[in-house]
Nucleic acid binder design. Structure first.
Lengths: 140, 140
DNA sequence: TGAATTTAGTTTCCAAGTCAATTAAATTCT
DNA sequence: AGAATTTAATTGACTTGGAAACTAAATTCA
């Protein structure tokens, strides 16, 4: 009994990569207008809630490896979007904070992001979107 | 009336990135044992069906930009997994073909991939997996 | 036909990411 | 206490990816 080879589109890994690529593409294009990359948006979005996070916590939530985060934060600091502050309890830790400029920039960016998310919502429908988020949550 | 800010986990873009990252991580770890990266696997998986594809077609299907594909193929050629053949009709085009060594390697790799996919299937269940592929298809 | 344009693939230059090593601070253990 | 270990973040060497420029072949059109 011979196995029939699935087309590559049927691999979860492939389907995820394709969808991720498509969504990222349009997001990158939108964010480029504001001079930030997706990861920088994630960082600012996370920090803008006011939570006080260390680099390590941020790396986990923002889906960025620590070395890449360090370097990206260097750039964001020199752009004036965030600043580092060494933690008072543990001097090894660094808290990252969003600046006033960063917050101002986020107002414009958030409109762009909202627009993109609305477009996806419209494309998939409310129910499918919810289902998608639910299933994806089970993979992370 | 004030807008309540969604947590970042509710953005489709974030949920996709998180799931993609998680799935890729384990896939990368598995493929590393065989000395190939995910994109190289995709290329060989696609070529192993025997279809005669140009670099451009392959780039689209394998989700790789043309310059990155060129460079990856250079490496794969020097590893002996694939070889280039200029197309007979149109000498600008290049057909990429998998070698016997590449096919041999794919037998081992496919077992690994199958194992990973089975694990996901088990994690999500048959129905959710199908639903996921269906919804993701609408985004690509 | 042959000059101008388009298309396919590659190359170049630069930006960004990874892995492993490093630094500095905190914690553990004797 | 203080030596040894663990933890947090960064740095350094190297690899890979992207945008734009480039080469070569095919096609269009005057």
């Amino acid at each position: 009994m011979s196995e029939l080879q699935n087309p590559i589109e049927d691999y979860v890994s492939y389907a995820l990569a394709a969808a991720h690529r498509a969504v990222n593409r349009s997001l990158v294009a939108r964010l480029k207008k504001h001079g930030v990359q997706i990861e920088a948006w994630r960082i600012m979005e996370i920090l803008d809630t006011g939570r006080r996070l260390t680099m390590g916590e941020l790396a986990q939530i923002a889906l960025i490896n620590p070395p890449a985060l360090s370097k990206l934060v260097d750039r964001m600091v020199s752009n004036g979007f965030v600043h580092r502050q060494s933690a008072q309890n543990d001097h090894r830790q660094v808290n990252l904070l969003i600046t006033a400029l960063g917050q101002k920039r986020m107002i414009q960016i958030r409109a762009e992001i909202q627009d993109q998310d609305d477009q996806i919502l419209q494309q998939l429908g409310d129910e499918q979107t919810k289902k998608l988020l639910d299933i994806l949550g089970g993979l992370s």
